[in-house]
Design a protein around this nucleic acid. Sequence first.
DNA 1: ACCTTGGTACGATAAACGTCGTACTACGAT
DNA 2: ATCGTAGTACGACGTTTATCGTACCAAGGT
Lengths: 111, 111
Amino acid sequence: MSASRQTASGRQLHHPDRDEIQLEAVLSALADPVRLRIVRALAQGHDDMACIAFDLPVSKSTSTHHFRVLREAGVIRQHYEGTSRLSRLREEDLEARMPGLLTAVLNAEGA
Amino acid sequence: MSASRQTASGRQLHHPDRDEIQLEAVLSALADPVRLRIVRALAQGHDDMACIAFDLPVSKSTSTHHFRVLREAGVIRQHYEGTSRLSRLREEDLEARMPGLLTAVLNAEGA
DNA sequence: ACCTTGGTACGATAAACGTCGTACTACGAT
DNA sequence: ATCGTAGTACGACGTTTATCGTACCAAGGT
């Protein structure tokens, strides 16, 4: 009700703090084809995309699952915007903790 | 019999060619704590180490399993030397396919 | 010839993962 | 007030994964 409401559903999305981001969790998160696809799409300028806009080859629930894995690993940040949930890469945080990792993954061959 | 025998047991270890190395396989391989430990040890100058020399917190058979995952992902190269099997990082191949990735993983915090 | 050492092979098992469908909720528009 | 849209929650299911123990094999030394 107040001005700074979290938009939508009081449900709070858990995001790890920058210094809580774990390498293994990030690697696991990036090791899945669907999630890698999401990350690539976000990196290609499509910042702040709604989940639905990715046109993923999986069902809605599976999609939700993958976004959660990415969020809980600290790879993306999500926030509500009306009925949608927008995602963006946590580029700065990742760069601070694991310099060069995201860039290397995005530029890699063999994907 | 001939001079170029593969040393020990005719059993051949399968290694992917450089251009067959897949990003997802590498990321999966590196996403495990035991395997990350192996890779770190290999990177710290301990090239050509026998499996046993890593002092891993798992059984022999599990150890064999992890080395196979790393090898089949293209992260390490293994060859027989008498009764031991020596491992080394495929740094050049990884750098060629995924520039900066290995370095980023080795330098990352949160591991 | 024997034993030790380093490692593989083969199950077995328990946990984690990716997938789905159905039911549900929240917001926005009609 | 109703409906559509975007997404969640939950439970189920099948597959993959990490782990182990036991049995085995190959190379080297005694």
